[in-house]
Design a protein around this nucleic acid. Structure first.
Lengths: 199, 199, 199, 199
DNA sequence: CATGAATGAGTTTTCATTCAT
DNA sequence: AATGAATGAAAACTCATTCAT
């Protein structure tokens, strides 16, 4: 049995070793990069034995993939909820961008990791295999083009622009290069994205 | 005397081992990533001994930095020439974006490598230390804000947006996700960037 | 459970890989010198993988330091016991010299290694940082000077003389240059050292 | 022809590249140790190309041996002259010890190198193959034993003691552990050595 | 489930030596 | 005689992964 039962504070601790490993790996990956993080470091920070990682995951690669899917799913849910509450395409687009900022603020480590994987790791050649969050952008854009609310540009290209703009805005704010307050940052980016597509 | 004299094709070959090392390293870095490329691979592709890399560069890190500076400088020159031929801020901005596309078409490997370093590697926190090519964007934008040609947005943020949009457009085209012809890709991106800032 | 249980000879074998590494390294260092011994050789003789050395020690340097401290401590204990049994300074001095010979006979490899480090490696500039065994010589000599049993000479210099004489005697005997029997060697050296300081 | 002809100061410079290589190697060996000194370092300090070392010496080993023989010969000559001016064995012994100190003061680098080789490098098992300087000590001691001036101890052992004492005295003074002035250091050591053997 | 010692192929780097010029 | 680029073997060290307990 786990020692956590005696810890009233266990809500602040990883409930299981598996979670501890995930938490440790995620933060290390996000801050140092994936290649630069060793399984030893992960085990040490997780407070467990190195070999234990292999009980829970097939290997380092599988751990990376798991974390990616987990975080992509979380981001997807945030965005899916956001997009549901909006009616017209322009509002939906704004909601998506705001959703990304919300996720980045809420799960800074997960966001950094997602960003890391999506730029460092292999690109997916087929849009049908894009990660779910990007699919939401793509679908929303398509809707706007069909309804005639958006100016005519290549949908895949526009998706790329907007995702890139949003990601970069978060990074620039995080590194302190952009000195704007967070709300102004979000507002300006939402406005810019909408301006870009509004007919 | 060198064997190159007998090779009419020597303009396609590395003149010196140093260049062979640089060429090999650049293409491997660009295609596989920097961490995933070993000095062995570099030496093998360069057709030289591994130890020889260390006669020409202090180490792998120094090789990376050299390649970065070399390619950043080349991009900077392409952009500097492009920006010189334009008069008003909007045209200058368009010329810069076209310059990036031109560089990416002309030096695809160098561009891929620069992109790799700028996203993988450490970000520079201080805009004063940004790589030269980004400085050109920043200066052009500032000019447009001062003259009143551009809509008022945070300059650092706008620089980030535009660089990100341009980079992403190249990548999406290269991976085949965007099926547009290259000229259309360039035109649409230039138009979008100008639209984003035009008052 | 460990394989050693089935080995009645296990008292002659290293109980753990860590000890096997120490034993292998010590004997190789003592016979070939430290620089001339590679981690590969150590691993091979220890019957383990090279990387395993680095699980137990930070690196080759740390292994050397560990062995030095271990052996210096063993010598120190041998000498401390020897010196305790003697009353006046002259006898104490003799006991120390005999102690060194006893250690050299008992732990020939350890002694050779200590000798190697103390002459090859960096000298400690500050007597307060001398290795423990030398401290015993220094203290004994100081006692003799204070009590007036010893002729007046510089204490640090005299310590150096005596330690050097003793070390050299062991080496000369070991290499066969001095053909004396071991007991005669010890007796002559003890007598010489006492003669050197006796008032 | 050499550039030195135009240098009025060439008496301060190595006359030939060969000498430059020897000088550079000797000082590097003496300060860092032989293994820790690379041919590159030697070439750089000598102001010549690395490959040039191999025009003048068969390899690094040959260079080491050459330097050893050169310096051992120089020490031998210093000692031979010193020993010639003394009549009885005790004086000869004192002259030898003083000679070692004189050599160490005059050629500190050469002395440090000799010391390094004699402790680090291989020991000569056969007294007949001892380096020449040690032979002088051995012969002088034998003379003293034969004439009855010296107390009866094993000649090879006594030689070892005295050489060790002398070397150690120089080292201790050089490292600052012994704070005596140089003259006092020499006098005390000479006196001690003579006291050790005087009947 | 959990441990951590053990593995071995891999990495970057150094170095004595050779060779074309 | 001199150069310095080139070589390849070997060095120290890392790391994802396995395995006995």
């Amino acid at each position: 049995m786990s020692v956590t039962a005696f810890h009233p504070d266990n809500r602040f601790m990883a409930e299981t070793k598996r979670e501890a490993i995930c938490d440790a790996a995620l933060s290390l990956f996000a801050s140092q990069g994936i290649d630069a993080t060793s399984t030893r470091q992960i085990a040490k920070r997780a407070g467990t034995a190195e070999g234990n990682i292999y009980r829970h995951f097939r290997g380092k690669d599988a751990l990376v993939r798991h974390l990616f899917e987990e975080n992509a799913m979380a981001l997807h849910q945030t965005l899916a909820e956001a997009v549901d509450e909006a009616d017209d395409p322009l509002e939906r687009l704004g909601a998506l961008v705001r959703g990304v900022f919300a996720f980045a603020a809420d799960q800074p480590v997960g966001f950094a990791f997602l960003f890391m994987v999506s730029t460092t790791g292999a690109f997916h050649d087929d849009p049908a295999e894009w990660p779910l969050p990007m699919m939401l952008f793509a679908q929303t854009l398509k809707g706007g083009f069909r309804s005639g609310d958006f100016r005519p540009v290549d949908p895949a290209l526009a998706t790329g622009w907007i995702v890139a703009m949003t990601q970069r805005a978060v990074i620039l704010h995080r590194t302190g290069i952009v000195r704007l307050g967070y709300d102004a940052l979000v507002d300006q980016t939402v406005e810019a994205v909408q301006h870009l597509l509004r007919r």
